[in-house]
Design a protein around this nucleic acid. Structure first.
Lengths: 161, 161
DNA sequence: GCGCAATCGGACGGATATGGTCCGATTTGA
DNA sequence: TCAAATCGGACCATATCCGTCCGATTGCGC
């Protein structure tokens, strides 16, 4: 009943990305510097190990939450406004569909007594409630509240910052 | 974001136990047969592998959800009325405290920037919502609805019943 | 009072999934 | 055209979880 550390990291990473470069923010015409973030920058800022950050960027891009540009000066940026991205989106991007029981998954019909299952509708109800809870929190809301520059939710085994 | 198969099984097992022997149901004075369920019976009825069912019984007993009696004719029964046992209780019994992030756990203070964490309160909010969703479903509600004698929620790799 | 049988309880080993590391493919800028 | 920097995917170590087994304990029958 705990989300994977990947999902946890993903939330932190998306939050950091939202703080620096919103959707549509290409490059600053004045400074001519890129507003995009790359995996290295995000890693340094959040404390997430670089390889893990790269993997997360990859998955989040594949899920359509980040837009990536390759080559020199490339990087990633949010594909949508932070207010339209929810925790449910992020979690599903890295962990797959939110389904507490295997029953609840899309095309899963492995349950041998599926038609007679009494507790399944209740499970689905709870499942929907959980998804709604996650969908109620947007990335935008995570960037508000407290000023400090960075704030990893958990960097347990990270000794040195 | 999926609960372990242990937790899934535990729900099925508790549901089966509630269907047969409610709290306080000792032995039937007429038939002189025990109303208690043992791990073997529960296993046969739910399709849960016997060793796993034993393990679940053990954990659920330790958590105070089941009362176990050893020796010949022993077995287990619900420690409380089914209406007072929720999915949250069962899940916590077998999976530990419901905490999406490591931050949210009881005595976890591993986050190196704990005081500055901006997303933690939001996570806790979502966490509470999830727990509330699970706490809203009682074991008693799982025994209603549909008549068939048994109904495992998922017995994926179980070929023969 | 004693032995037996049945049960719970904990310990061990294998398997799956996760997290971390590395190298190659691709693209932009000079 | 060359070179640098980036994303993308493949590989391996680790940890957790699941399934199996054996021992400890208790109550019944003799």
């Amino acid at each position: 009943m705990r989300l994977s550390s990947f999902a946890d990291y993903a939330v932190v990473l998306m939050s950091a990305a939202a703080r620096h470069c919103g959707a549509g923010a290409g490059r600053d015409p004045a400074t001519h510097k890129h507003l995009r973030m790359n995996a290295t920058t995000l890693s340094a800022e959040t404390g997430i190990p670089l390889p893990t950050a790269q993997k997360l960027v990859s998955r989040l891009s594949a899920a359509g939450l980040l837009e990536s540009s390759r080559g020199t000066g490339g990087g990633v940026r949010l594909a949508r406004p932070p207010a339209t991205i929810t925790l449910a989106d992020v979690v599903e991007a890295v962990e797959g569909p939110i389904a507490m029981t295997a029953c609840a998954e899309m095309g899963a019909h492995d349950c041998n007594l599926e038609s007679d299952c009494r507790i399944r509708p209740h499970m689905n109800l709870a499942n929907d409630a959980i998804r709604a809870a996650l969908a109620g929190v947007t990335i935008a809301s995570l960037t508000r509240d407290i000023p400090p520059p960075f704030a990893p939710s958990e960097v347990e085994k990270q000794v040195a910052l």
